[in-house]
């Protein structure tokens, strides 16, 4: 049986190989917030847009707060087709057509405000 210490070491190596996030690659990450009245298909609609543009979802938190669908996503747009502004406009248009509030911002601003 592998010892806990050994497992920790392997985990550390894996993390190192995966690449610990640093300032340089944070520049290509965005935070996406989606808020609206809950119904089936909200997440599918948003993620389809991301998939079509080859924007890569890194993290998702989704919950229902008082009947409101609220979703926060961290997305990497380094390999994305189109510019940040293109994506933002497409998501905002999707939001307007589906009564959703969709906010898109670079992740860097959140790190600046919450991390030393």
């Amino acid at each position: 049986m592998t010892s806990p210490r050994r497992l920790n070491q392997e985990f550390a190596v894996q993390i190192e190989r995966a690449g610990v996030p640093n300032g340089a690659d944070r520049g290509s990450r965005i935070v996406l917030a989606v808020i609206g009245k809950d119904r089936p298909g909200i997440m599918a609609g948003v993620t389809t847009i991301l998939a079509n543009r080859r924007a890569n979802i890194l993290d998702v938190t989704q919950t229902i707060l008082g009947g409101l669908f609220t979703m926060l996503m961290v997305v990497d747009i380094a390999e994305m087709n189109g510019s940040f502004s293109d994506l933002k406009r497409e998501l905002e248009a999707h939001g307007n057509a589906n009564a959703l509030s969709i906010l898109v911002q670079r992740e860097e601003i959140f790190h600046a405000m919450h991390r030393l």
């Binding site: 996030p21 935070v31 917030a33 993290d59 938190t61 926060l72 961290v74 906010l103 992740e107 601003i109 959140f110 790190h111 405000m113 919450h114 991390r115």
Partner: peptide
């Protein structure tokens, strides 16, 4: 350390409300 949703929401509400 990744951002947690509380931090994301705090910044979003600081800006939007």
């Amino acid at each position: 350390m990744p951002l947690d949703s509380r931090e994301l929401v705090e910044t979003l509400s600081m800006v939007h409300s």
